[in-house]
Design a protein around this nucleic acid. Structure first.
Length: 261
DNA sequence: ATGACAAAGATCCTTTGA
């Protein structure tokens, strides 16, 4: 069994106590972090290594930044999403994790927010998604199971928001964003959460503002997408909702899959 | 229509996020 989790931690240095607490409590084999808001040199590597994890980071100053933590060695680590040499944002890191019975290619991705919609940020988001689709298609050519885990900044369906009507002008819920997310599904990637549970009220993000957590005004934007070989191995999905109630929480909570590999 | 929160950087305000 291999458990793979994703968590937009919203600042790893501000959240290191929560991260270590959660790692000890849930003991995932692999963790995909986003928004570490840290450079590689200042990532709290020792605190994570003490708990038995190998660490690979792709950080930058102040914002963005992704990382992979793994109890097993991280092999063939590559950073950056192909397709635009000019893109300096640290939003993509992938590596291979080998188990006794095989190997899995794991990606930690942080898809651009894209707001406001009438700004270049939205065009950047859509172009980034097109690059993601191209690369995700290339990855399918291998015979390794592929796990694309991260903060997608996309609300796939109305049922993925408590108040979908409030998101109609938001980049996370635009038809252009949602259609590109569906294109990933049409490539063959399975939304692990929706494969096991189609019920309403499953959220992974609650805004810090206006008492969103207390009112359960959430959205589901953190996704674990599985290639066909990975989907064949899917056992279970868990949303670690309780961490949103901790002191000094991230506004996102971890999502975790268990794979029979 | 607007603000409400939070983290980080180089200050005591701005940028970024969703």
């Amino acid at each position: 069994m291999l458990t793979v989790a994703t968590w937009n931690i919203n600042g790893v240095k501000a959240r290191i106590d929560s991260l270590t607490k959660w790692l000890e409590e849930s003991a995932p084999d692999v963790v995909c972090l986003q928004e570490i808001k840290s450079q590689d040199e200042t990532f709290p590597t020792e605190a994570v290594e003490r708990l038995g994890y190998n660490v690979a980071t792709h950080g930058q100053k102040g914002f963005n930044g992704v990382a992979l933590l793994s109890k097993r060695p991280l092999e063939d680590i590559t950073c950056r999403l192909p397709g635009d040499e000019e893109d300096e944002h640290a939003r993509w890191i992938e590596a291979t994790v080998s188990t006794d019975t095989g190997a899995v290619r794991v990606v930690s991705l942080y898809l651009p927010n894209g707001n406001p919609v009438d700004s270049p940020k939205f065009g950047y988001k859509l172009a980034w998604m097109d690059r993601m689709l191209a690369h995700a298609g290339e990855l399918l050519a291998t015979d390794e199971p592929i796990v694309l885990a991260g903060d997608y900044n996309v609300i796939p369906e109305p049922m993925d928001a408590r108040h979908p009507d409030r998101w109609v002008d938001d980049a996370l819920f635009q038809p252009e964003s949602r259609s590109r997310h569906r294109a990933l599904v049409n490539l063959g990637y399975l939304d692990a959460q929706r494969a096991v549970d189609r019920s309403e009220g499953i959220y992974t993000f609650w805004d810090y503002q206006a008492g969103a957590w207390q009112k359960n005004n959430g959205i589901r934007i953190d996704h674990i997408m599985l290639s066909p070989f990975a989907a064949d191995r899917l056992e279970s999905v868990t949303v670690e909702k309780h961490t949103r109630g901790w002191t000094k929480p991230s506004d996102h909570v971890p999502v975790m899959v268990t794979l029979d590999v």
